[in-house]
Design a protein around this nucleic acid. Structure first.
Lengths: 178, 178
DNA sequence: TCAATGAGTGGACAACCTGTCCAGTCTTCT
DNA sequence: AGAAGACTGGACAGGTTGTCCACTCATTGA
Protein backbone atom coordinates (compact mmCIF):
# COMPACT_ATOMS: atom_id res chain seq x y z
CA UNK A 1 0.00 0.00 0.00
CA UNK A 2 1.18 3.47 -0.82
CA UNK A 3 2.47 5.69 1.84
CA UNK A 4 -0.23 8.32 1.82
CA UNK A 5 2.18 11.13 2.43
CA UNK A 6 3.61 10.47 -0.97
CA UNK A 7 0.32 11.60 -2.40
CA UNK A 8 1.25 15.18 -1.63
CA UNK A 9 3.10 17.08 -4.28
CA UNK A 10 4.61 20.50 -4.11
CA UNK A 11 3.62 22.65 -7.05
CA UNK A 12 5.60 25.40 -8.67
CA UNK A 13 3.58 27.92 -6.68
CA UNK A 14 4.74 26.26 -3.50
CA UNK A 15 1.27 25.02 -2.81
CA UNK A 16 0.53 21.51 -1.75
CA UNK A 17 -1.87 19.66 -3.91
CA UNK A 18 -3.17 16.23 -3.26
CA UNK A 19 -3.23 13.20 -5.43
CA UNK A 20 -5.92 10.76 -4.48
CA UNK A 21 -5.68 7.02 -4.79
CA UNK A 22 -8.17 4.46 -5.90
CA UNK A 23 -9.79 4.08 -2.49
CA UNK A 24 -10.32 7.83 -2.21
CA UNK A 25 -11.81 7.82 -5.65
CA UNK A 26 -14.18 4.99 -4.84
CA UNK A 27 -15.16 6.70 -1.61
CA UNK A 28 -15.98 9.91 -3.43
CA UNK A 29 -17.95 8.03 -6.05
CA UNK A 30 -19.89 6.22 -3.37
CA UNK A 31 -20.67 9.40 -1.48
CA UNK A 32 -21.71 11.12 -4.67
CA UNK A 33 -24.09 8.31 -5.53
CA UNK A 34 -25.53 8.03 -2.02
CA UNK A 35 -24.52 11.09 -0.09
CA UNK A 36 -26.38 10.42 3.12
CA UNK A 37 -24.39 7.27 3.73
CA UNK A 38 -22.68 7.11 7.07
CA UNK A 39 -19.09 6.21 7.67
CA UNK A 40 -19.98 2.75 8.83
CA UNK A 41 -22.05 1.93 5.77
CA UNK A 42 -19.31 3.28 3.51
CA UNK A 43 -16.77 1.00 5.15
CA UNK A 44 -19.06 -1.99 4.55
CA UNK A 45 -19.57 -1.10 0.89
CA UNK A 46 -15.90 -0.48 0.25
CA UNK A 47 -14.77 -3.53 2.17
CA UNK A 48 -12.44 -1.71 4.53
CA UNK A 49 -12.45 -0.96 8.21
CA UNK A 50 -14.51 1.90 9.55
CA UNK A 51 -11.44 3.66 10.87
CA UNK A 52 -9.95 3.66 7.40
CA UNK A 53 -12.93 5.41 5.88
CA UNK A 54 -12.96 7.85 8.74
CA UNK A 55 -9.28 8.64 8.27
CA UNK A 56 -9.65 9.02 4.50
CA UNK A 57 -12.60 11.35 4.89
CA UNK A 58 -10.79 13.45 7.47
CA UNK A 59 -7.84 13.71 5.16
CA UNK A 60 -9.90 14.63 2.11
CA UNK A 61 -11.60 17.35 4.08
CA UNK A 62 -8.52 18.75 5.79
CA UNK A 63 -6.65 18.82 2.48
CA UNK A 64 -9.52 20.72 0.93
CA UNK A 65 -10.43 18.14 -1.67
CA UNK A 66 -13.89 17.86 -0.17
CA UNK A 67 -15.02 21.36 0.61
CA UNK A 68 -18.40 20.44 1.97
CA UNK A 69 -21.53 18.40 1.73
CA UNK A 70 -23.83 21.22 0.84
CA UNK A 71 -27.38 20.46 -0.16
CA UNK A 72 -27.54 20.68 -3.94
CA UNK A 73 -30.40 22.98 -4.79
CA UNK A 74 -32.14 22.71 -8.13
CA UNK A 75 -32.90 26.22 -9.30
CA UNK A 76 -35.25 24.73 -11.88
CA UNK A 77 -37.36 23.18 -9.13
CA UNK A 78 -37.71 26.65 -7.65
CA UNK A 79 -39.04 27.94 -10.93
CA UNK A 80 -35.82 29.31 -12.37
CA UNK A 81 -35.85 27.45 -15.64
CA UNK A 82 -33.65 29.76 -17.65
CA UNK A 83 -29.87 29.66 -17.36
CA UNK A 84 -27.64 32.09 -19.18
CA UNK A 85 -24.05 33.17 -19.30
CA UNK A 86 -23.61 36.89 -19.45
CA UNK A 87 -20.36 38.36 -20.69
CA UNK A 88 -19.56 41.82 -19.40
CA UNK A 89 -17.36 44.59 -20.59
CA UNK A 90 -16.51 46.97 -17.80
CA UNK A 91 -14.81 50.28 -17.31
CA UNK A 92 -11.47 49.01 -16.22
CA UNK A 93 -10.21 52.03 -14.35
CA UNK A 94 -11.43 50.77 -11.00
CA UNK A 95 -10.68 47.12 -11.58
CA UNK A 96 -12.91 44.08 -11.50
CA UNK A 97 -13.51 43.73 -7.81
CA UNK A 98 -16.02 46.50 -7.20
CA UNK A 99 -18.11 45.36 -10.15
CA UNK A 100 -18.01 41.74 -9.07
CA UNK A 101 -18.94 42.82 -5.59
CA UNK A 102 -22.02 44.62 -6.84
CA UNK A 103 -22.97 41.73 -9.07
CA UNK A 104 -22.87 39.52 -6.01
CA UNK A 105 -25.82 41.46 -4.64
CA UNK A 106 -28.07 40.18 -7.40
CA UNK A 107 -29.47 36.86 -6.23
CA UNK A 108 -29.94 35.55 -9.75
CA UNK A 109 -26.21 35.85 -10.36
CA UNK A 110 -24.89 32.46 -9.32
CA UNK A 111 -21.26 32.75 -10.29
CA UNK A 112 -18.82 35.41 -11.51
CA UNK A 113 -15.48 34.90 -13.22
CA UNK A 114 -12.93 37.31 -14.57
CA UNK A 115 -12.01 36.08 -17.99
CA UNK A 116 -9.69 36.44 -20.92
CA UNK A 117 -10.83 37.38 -24.38
CA UNK A 118 -13.08 40.13 -25.58
CA UNK A 119 -14.91 40.43 -22.28
CA UNK A 120 -13.82 41.17 -18.75
CA UNK A 121 -16.29 39.27 -16.63
CA UNK A 122 -18.55 36.35 -17.22
CA UNK A 123 -21.39 35.42 -14.96
CA UNK A 124 -23.84 32.62 -14.77
CA UNK A 125 -27.36 33.79 -14.12
CA UNK A 126 -30.75 32.15 -13.80
CA UNK A 127 -34.20 33.55 -14.34
CA UNK A 128 -37.78 32.36 -14.29
CA UNK A 129 -38.52 33.03 -17.93
CA UNK A 130 -36.89 34.73 -20.86
CA UNK A 131 -38.75 37.90 -19.97
CA UNK A 132 -37.45 37.58 -16.44
CA UNK A 133 -33.96 37.13 -17.84
CA UNK A 134 -34.32 40.50 -19.46
CA UNK A 135 -35.08 41.97 -16.04
CA UNK A 136 -31.98 40.33 -14.56
CA UNK A 137 -29.80 41.55 -17.42
CA UNK A 138 -31.20 45.03 -16.92
CA UNK A 139 -30.15 44.84 -13.29
CA UNK A 140 -26.69 43.79 -14.38
CA UNK A 141 -26.42 46.59 -16.90
CA UNK A 142 -27.37 49.06 -14.21
CA UNK A 143 -24.42 48.00 -12.11
CA UNK A 144 -21.93 50.84 -12.00
CA UNK A 145 -18.87 50.07 -14.09
CA UNK A 146 -20.65 47.79 -16.55
CA UNK A 147 -20.35 49.11 -20.07
CA UNK A 148 -21.80 46.36 -22.23
CA UNK A 149 -23.19 42.87 -21.91
CA UNK A 150 -23.81 40.03 -24.26
CA UNK A 151 -25.70 36.94 -23.29
CA UNK A 152 -25.51 33.31 -24.13
CA UNK A 153 -28.60 31.37 -23.20
CA UNK A 154 -28.22 27.74 -22.24
CA UNK A 155 -30.98 25.90 -24.03
CA UNK A 156 -30.18 22.47 -22.72
CA UNK A 157 -27.58 20.84 -20.52
CA UNK A 158 -26.64 17.48 -21.97
CA UNK A 159 -23.84 17.11 -19.42
CA UNK A 160 -24.71 18.61 -16.04
CA UNK A 161 -21.87 19.58 -13.73
CA UNK A 162 -19.98 16.54 -12.57
CA UNK A 163 -16.54 15.82 -11.19
CA UNK A 164 -16.62 12.07 -10.90
CA UNK A 165 -14.88 11.20 -14.18
CA UNK A 166 -12.08 13.52 -13.20
CA UNK A 167 -11.92 12.05 -9.72
CA UNK A 168 -11.69 8.59 -11.24
CA UNK A 169 -9.01 9.76 -13.64
CA UNK A 170 -6.60 11.19 -11.06
CA UNK A 171 -5.52 7.85 -9.53
CA UNK A 172 -5.29 6.31 -13.02
CA UNK A 173 -3.02 9.09 -14.17
CA UNK A 174 -0.95 8.85 -11.00
CA UNK A 175 -0.51 5.11 -11.53
CA UNK A 176 0.53 5.66 -15.13
CA UNK A 177 3.17 8.16 -14.12
CA UNK A 178 4.75 6.03 -11.44
CA UNK B 1 -48.91 29.37 9.17
CA UNK B 2 -49.24 28.84 5.46
CA UNK B 3 -50.81 25.77 4.14
CA UNK B 4 -47.80 24.18 2.53
CA UNK B 5 -49.76 22.86 -0.42
CA UNK B 6 -50.30 26.43 -1.49
CA UNK B 7 -46.59 26.63 -2.11
CA UNK B 8 -47.04 24.59 -5.23
CA UNK B 9 -47.74 26.42 -8.45
CA UNK B 10 -48.64 25.05 -11.82
CA UNK B 11 -46.49 26.47 -14.56
CA UNK B 12 -47.44 27.04 -18.16
CA UNK B 13 -45.67 23.80 -19.03
CA UNK B 14 -47.95 21.95 -16.67
CA UNK B 15 -45.08 21.27 -14.37
CA UNK B 16 -45.29 21.78 -10.65
CA UNK B 17 -42.72 24.06 -9.23
CA UNK B 18 -42.27 24.77 -5.60
CA UNK B 19 -42.14 27.98 -3.74
CA UNK B 20 -40.29 27.72 -0.49
CA UNK B 21 -41.09 29.68 2.63
CA UNK B 22 -38.87 31.33 5.18
CA UNK B 23 -38.36 28.22 7.23
CA UNK B 24 -37.27 26.22 4.19
CA UNK B 25 -34.91 28.99 3.30
CA UNK B 26 -33.39 29.09 6.76
CA UNK B 27 -33.07 25.33 6.75
CA UNK B 28 -31.23 25.39 3.44
CA UNK B 29 -28.96 28.16 4.64
CA UNK B 30 -28.20 26.24 7.80
CA UNK B 31 -27.43 23.05 5.92
CA UNK B 32 -25.25 24.93 3.48
CA UNK B 33 -23.26 26.48 6.29
CA UNK B 34 -22.93 23.25 8.27
CA UNK B 35 -23.88 20.39 6.00
CA UNK B 36 -23.15 17.51 8.32
CA UNK B 37 -25.75 18.70 10.80
CA UNK B 38 -28.32 16.13 11.73
CA UNK B 39 -32.04 16.64 11.74
CA UNK B 40 -32.11 16.98 15.50
CA UNK B 41 -29.45 19.66 15.62
CA UNK B 42 -31.19 21.56 12.84
CA UNK B 43 -34.42 21.55 14.77
CA UNK B 44 -32.62 22.97 17.79
CA UNK B 45 -30.98 25.72 15.78
CA UNK B 46 -34.18 26.67 13.98
CA UNK B 47 -36.31 26.51 17.08
CA UNK B 48 -38.84 24.04 15.75
CA UNK B 49 -39.70 20.45 16.47
CA UNK B 50 -37.63 17.68 15.02
CA UNK B 51 -40.58 16.29 13.12
CA UNK B 52 -41.05 19.61 11.38
CA UNK B 53 -37.51 19.68 10.10
CA UNK B 54 -37.82 16.09 9.03
CA UNK B 55 -41.05 16.81 7.14
CA UNK B 56 -39.57 19.89 5.48
CA UNK B 57 -36.48 18.03 4.39
CA UNK B 58 -38.54 15.15 3.01
CA UNK B 59 -40.65 17.61 1.10
CA UNK B 60 -37.69 19.53 -0.31
CA UNK B 61 -36.16 16.29 -1.47
CA UNK B 62 -39.28 14.71 -2.92
CA UNK B 63 -40.14 17.93 -4.75
CA UNK B 64 -36.65 17.97 -6.22
CA UNK B 65 -35.51 21.22 -4.68
CA UNK B 66 -32.71 19.41 -2.92
CA UNK B 67 -31.24 17.00 -5.41
CA UNK B 68 -28.61 15.59 -3.13
CA UNK B 69 -25.92 16.15 -0.58
CA UNK B 70 -23.03 15.29 -2.78
CA UNK B 71 -19.52 15.90 -1.54
CA UNK B 72 -18.28 19.11 -3.12
CA UNK B 73 -14.92 18.37 -4.67
CA UNK B 74 -12.40 21.11 -5.23
CA UNK B 75 -10.74 20.49 -8.56
CA UNK B 76 -8.08 23.01 -7.58
CA UNK B 77 -7.12 20.88 -4.58
CA UNK B 78 -6.59 18.01 -6.98
CA UNK B 79 -4.18 20.10 -9.00
CA UNK B 80 -6.57 21.32 -11.67
CA UNK B 81 -5.99 25.02 -11.27
CA UNK B 82 -7.10 26.18 -14.68
CA UNK B 83 -10.76 26.63 -15.52
CA UNK B 84 -11.96 27.56 -18.98
CA UNK B 85 -15.14 27.81 -20.94
CA UNK B 86 -14.86 26.41 -24.41
CA UNK B 87 -17.35 27.43 -27.08
CA UNK B 88 -17.84 24.92 -29.86
CA UNK B 89 -19.14 25.14 -33.35
CA UNK B 90 -20.27 21.78 -34.62
CA UNK B 91 -21.43 20.19 -37.82
CA UNK B 92 -25.11 20.38 -37.19
CA UNK B 93 -26.29 17.64 -39.50
CA UNK B 94 -26.26 15.01 -36.77
CA UNK B 95 -27.46 17.25 -33.96
CA UNK B 96 -25.89 18.13 -30.65
CA UNK B 97 -26.39 14.91 -28.78
CA UNK B 98 -23.71 12.72 -30.31
CA UNK B 99 -21.13 15.46 -29.85
CA UNK B 100 -22.16 16.10 -26.26
CA UNK B 101 -22.03 12.40 -25.63
CA UNK B 102 -18.47 12.18 -26.87
CA UNK B 103 -17.45 15.24 -24.91
CA UNK B 104 -18.77 13.51 -21.81
CA UNK B 105 -16.01 10.95 -22.19
CA UNK B 106 -13.37 13.56 -21.50
CA UNK B 107 -12.94 13.71 -17.72
CA UNK B 108 -11.76 17.32 -17.79
CA UNK B 109 -15.07 18.39 -19.31
CA UNK B 110 -17.18 19.18 -16.29
CA UNK B 111 -20.30 20.54 -17.91
CA UNK B 112 -21.83 20.87 -21.38
CA UNK B 113 -24.60 23.19 -22.50
CA UNK B 114 -26.22 23.78 -25.83
CA UNK B 115 -26.38 27.50 -26.32
CA UNK B 116 -27.71 30.35 -28.39
CA UNK B 117 -25.49 32.78 -30.22
CA UNK B 118 -22.59 32.24 -32.50
CA UNK B 119 -21.70 28.88 -31.00
CA UNK B 120 -23.56 25.64 -30.61
CA UNK B 121 -22.13 24.15 -27.46
CA UNK B 122 -20.35 25.54 -24.48
CA UNK B 123 -18.45 23.48 -22.01
CA UNK B 124 -16.66 24.10 -18.80
CA UNK B 125 -13.31 22.40 -18.61
CA UNK B 126 -10.49 22.23 -16.12
CA UNK B 127 -6.82 21.52 -16.60
CA UNK B 128 -3.66 21.36 -14.54
CA UNK B 129 -1.85 24.14 -16.33
CA UNK B 130 -2.28 26.26 -19.40
CA UNK B 131 -0.22 23.77 -21.34
CA UNK B 132 -2.47 21.03 -20.08
CA UNK B 133 -5.46 23.07 -21.17
CA UNK B 134 -4.09 22.95 -24.67
CA UNK B 135 -4.04 19.18 -24.45
CA UNK B 136 -7.67 19.12 -23.29
CA UNK B 137 -8.74 21.49 -26.04
CA UNK B 138 -6.95 19.29 -28.55
CA UNK B 139 -8.96 16.36 -27.28
CA UNK B 140 -12.13 18.38 -27.72
CA UNK B 141 -11.20 19.42 -31.22
CA UNK B 142 -10.61 15.82 -32.12
CA UNK B 143 -14.16 14.93 -31.20
CA UNK B 144 -16.06 14.03 -34.34
CA UNK B 145 -18.51 16.75 -35.28
CA UNK B 146 -16.56 19.59 -33.74
CA UNK B 147 -15.65 22.19 -36.33
CA UNK B 148 -14.16 25.03 -34.34
CA UNK B 149 -13.55 26.04 -30.75
CA UNK B 150 -12.82 29.25 -28.97
CA UNK B 151 -11.82 29.40 -25.35
CA UNK B 152 -12.40 31.77 -22.52
CA UNK B 153 -10.07 31.25 -19.60
CA UNK B 154 -11.35 32.05 -16.13
CA UNK B 155 -8.55 33.94 -14.44
CA UNK B 156 -10.26 34.41 -11.13
CA UNK B 157 -13.61 33.66 -9.57
CA UNK B 158 -14.69 36.57 -7.41
CA UNK B 159 -18.10 34.96 -6.88
CA UNK B 160 -17.95 31.17 -6.67
CA UNK B 161 -21.11 29.22 -7.40
CA UNK B 162 -23.74 29.85 -4.80
CA UNK B 163 -27.49 29.55 -4.58
CA UNK B 164 -28.16 30.91 -1.13
CA UNK B 165 -29.06 34.49 -2.09
CA UNK B 166 -31.57 33.11 -4.55
CA UNK B 167 -32.93 30.71 -1.97
CA UNK B 168 -33.34 33.61 0.43
CA UNK B 169 -35.01 35.69 -2.24
CA UNK B 170 -37.75 33.22 -3.18
CA UNK B 171 -39.77 33.53 0.05
CA UNK B 172 -39.30 37.31 0.02
CA UNK B 173 -40.64 37.52 -3.50
CA UNK B 174 -43.51 35.21 -2.64
CA UNK B 175 -44.41 37.39 0.34
CA UNK B 176 -44.31 40.50 -1.81
CA UNK B 177 -46.66 38.99 -4.35
CA UNK B 178 -49.26 37.86 -1.87
C1' DT C 1 19.47 -6.04 8.13
C1' DC C 2 16.79 -3.94 11.71
C1' DA C 3 14.04 -0.45 13.79
C1' DA C 4 10.84 3.19 12.98
C1' DT C 5 6.98 4.89 10.68
C1' DG C 6 2.53 5.09 8.68
C1' DA C 7 -1.66 2.73 7.31
C1' DG C 8 -4.95 -0.48 8.09
C1' DT C 9 -7.66 -3.92 11.11
C1' DG C 10 -10.97 -5.47 14.52
C1' DG C 11 -12.86 -4.72 18.76
C1' DA C 12 -14.73 -2.10 22.56
C1' DC C 13 -17.43 1.73 25.02
C1' DA C 14 -20.80 5.39 26.12
C1' DA C 15 -23.43 8.94 24.04
C1' DC C 16 -26.08 10.23 20.62
C1' DC C 17 -29.13 10.33 16.61
C1' DT C 18 -32.50 8.27 13.44
C1' DG C 19 -36.82 6.43 11.87
C1' DT C 20 -41.21 5.88 13.31
C1' DC C 21 -44.90 5.89 16.02
C1' DC C 22 -48.61 8.65 18.71
C1' DA C 23 -52.00 12.07 20.77
C1' DG C 24 -53.01 16.72 21.09
C1' DT C 25 -53.22 21.69 19.54
C1' DC C 26 -53.96 25.36 16.29
C1' DT C 27 -55.14 27.54 12.05
C1' DT C 28 -57.19 27.66 7.63
C1' DC C 29 -60.52 26.42 4.23
C1' DT C 30 -65.13 24.68 2.90
C1' DA D 1 -69.07 23.45 12.60
C1' DG D 2 -66.19 20.04 10.57
C1' DA D 3 -62.24 18.54 8.01
C1' DA D 4 -57.62 18.89 6.71
C1' DG D 5 -52.98 20.13 7.14
C1' DA D 6 -49.06 21.56 9.92
C1' DC D 7 -46.72 21.58 14.07
C1' DT D 8 -45.53 20.03 18.82
C1' DG D 9 -43.63 17.10 22.38
C1' DG D 10 -43.00 12.70 23.77
C1' DA D 11 -41.83 7.88 23.36
C1' DC D 12 -39.27 3.59 21.63
C1' DA D 13 -35.77 0.36 19.68
C1' DG D 14 -31.94 0.11 16.86
C1' DG D 15 -28.15 1.82 14.59
C1' DT D 16 -24.35 5.10 14.31
C1' DT D 17 -20.73 8.16 15.91
C1' DG D 18 -16.51 9.56 18.16
C1' DT D 19 -12.85 7.76 20.43
C1' DC D 20 -10.14 4.70 22.50
C1' DC D 21 -6.89 0.44 22.13
C1' DA D 22 -3.62 -3.39 20.72
C1' DC D 23 -2.08 -5.75 16.78
C1' DT D 24 -0.44 -6.63 11.95
C1' DC D 25 1.86 -5.47 7.77
C1' DA D 26 4.66 -3.06 4.27
C1' DT D 27 7.79 0.57 3.31
C1' DT D 28 11.64 3.54 4.47
C1' DG D 29 16.00 4.89 5.86
C1' DA D 30 20.05 4.36 8.92
Amino acid sequence: MDNLSSLLARTAENLYIMTIDHLDSRLLALLTAEPRLGVLECSRRLGVARGTVQARLDRLMSRGVITGFGPDVSTAALGYDVTAFVLLEIRQVAGHEPVAHRLAHIPEVLEVHTVTGGSDLMCRVVARTNADLQRVIDEIVEVRGVVRTSSIIALDTPVPYRVLPLVADVPRRAARES
